Computed example of a mutant assay.
Amino acid sequence: MSPLLGRAPESICVLRLSALGDICNTLPAVRALQRQWPDCRITWIVGKVEAMMLDGIDGVELLVYDKRSGFKGMLELRKKLKGRRFDLLLHMQAALRASLLSLCIPARIRLGFDAERAKDNQRLFTNRQIAPNPRKHVLDGFMDFIRACGADAESLEWRMPIPDQDREQARRLVGEQRYLVISPCSSQRIRNFRNWSVEGYAEVIDHAWQQYGLRTVLSGGNTELEQHYGERLGELCSATPINLIGKTSLKELLALIEGAELVLGPDSGPMHMGTATGTPALGLYASSNPDRTGPYLSRQWVVNAYPAQVQKAFGCEVDSISWGKRVREPDVMDSIQVSEVTAMMDRLLAERSA
């Protein structure tokens, strides 16, 4: 029974559009709903790119909203949902665009974030709120929705759908050798400095090869910056990486990460894809707080320069600033030293081997 309804829900709509990492962090909440109420019809409204990653998920109806479609896309969603009414809407994205989209979703109970986490006036679009749970990881925030629904939120399960043909393609791309995946760049946003140096990655790639015989696979999108990283790393490394930047689908990337010894990169989607596929993630964090957005099951492997950079930028400890505040200095990631990354890789691989 759900305390919100006084009975078990028959239909639930999950509203979480983006981004890839947040979708990975939302998946355990959806799986918890499935475990608790296996007969409940679950609909997930998700972004176009993110739906490509979730394609094939069992027991969930995916309704795709293309963020570029604007008002037209909202009308199309409203048309798709005409005549339907959900018992519960889990409004799990505190952004104005998502809140406006939520107006197209008929639901009896509209559950949103508590006052602290309900950004962009989300509370105006909901009629129930989850309990406050300050200074927690993003994934814990999503599981707070599950607790509010009355479902078991203690067990975490992903079961990210990866077709066999994508696993086979991943094997064709890398062969039978042991490897790690490096996704060197995060998504490009204004004053969001999360990328480490090409030179730093090159030294780590050579360390992985010389010490462990691990080949590096490079992944990423097809932007000019990411292509530049791939080309430069090919020039700088003595152990030439397999450059798959801009050459794989999301499903193939999931399969590559699933088969890797580890995945390495900044605060970005592939870190959470590692968690979703059971692969350790070695995250590089200086501008953002890994206790909030780090790879959930691999936070012990994060190279964490964030506290020192908060002290440098704001003159205080992490506990004294707002949760999730970013350090927006262009050189913030330069504070991460190659020796810190290789030492963390050594620890991770030693424990994985043991």
Score class of each variant (00 low, 15 high):
Gly6His: 02
Pro307Ile: 15
Lys67His: 05
Ser183Thr: 06
Phe142Tyr: 12
Gly73Ala: 14
Gln300Tyr: 09
Leu27Met: 11
Gly230Met: 11
Ala153Lys: 12
Glu261Val: 13
Arg172Leu: 13
Ser155Cys: 12
His207Tyr: 10
Leu256Cys: 03
Gln227Gly: 03
Gln300Arg: 15
Met143Asn: 09
Lys247Ser: 11
Ala29Arg: 12
Gln211His: 14
Arg178Val: 10
Arg328Gln: 14
Pro295Thr: 08
Tyr306Pro: 07
Ala153Cys: 08
Gly315His: 12
Gly234Glu: 09
Val14Leu: 07
Leu233Ile: 06
Pro38Thr: 03
Gln311Thr: 06
Arg159Lys: 15
Leu124Val: 00
Ala343Ser: 15
Asn121Ser: 07
Met53Gln: 05
Thr126Asn: 07
Arg326Met: 07
Val204Gln: 12
Glu351Leu: 13
Ser11Arg: 11
Ala286Arg: 13
Cys104Phe: 04
Gly56Lys: 11
Leu284Ser: 09
Val303Gly: 00
Val263Cys: 06
Leu63Ala: 03
Asn289Leu: 14
Val198Pro: 01
Gly246His: 12
Arg108Lys: 10
His228Arg: 15
Leu15Lys: 02
Pro266Phe: 14
Leu254Asn: 08
Pro330Val: 10
His272Ser: 01
Asp66Leu: 13
Lys79Val: 02
Leu297His: 08
Leu236Tyr: 08
Ile109Thr: 00
Glu61Gly: 05
Asp22Ile: 01
Leu233Phe: 09
Asp120Thr: 03
Arg110Ser: 03
Leu236Asp: 00
Arg194Gly: 07
Arg347Met: 03
Leu88Pro: 00
Glu154Ser: 14
Pro38Ser: 03
Lys247Val: 10
Leu156Ile: 10
Leu100Cys: 01
Glu258Cys: 12
Cys13Glu: 02
Gly6Pro: 00
Thr293Trp: 10
Val174Cys: 06
Gly150Ala: 07
Asp206Asn: 09
Gly283Phe: 06
Ala260His: 09
Ile146Tyr: 05
Thr26Ala: 10
Ala107Tyr: 09
Pro270Lys: 14
Ser353Ala: 14
Arg135Trp: 04
Val263Lys: 05
Pro38Tyr: 03
Arg147Thr: 08
Ile109Gln: 00
Ala94Cys: 11
Arg171Ile: 02
Gln300Gly: 09
Glu261Ser: 11
Gly213Phe: 07
Gly265Ser: 10
Ala202Ser: 07
Ser322Ala: 12
His272Trp: 06
Asp55His: 06
Val204Ser: 07
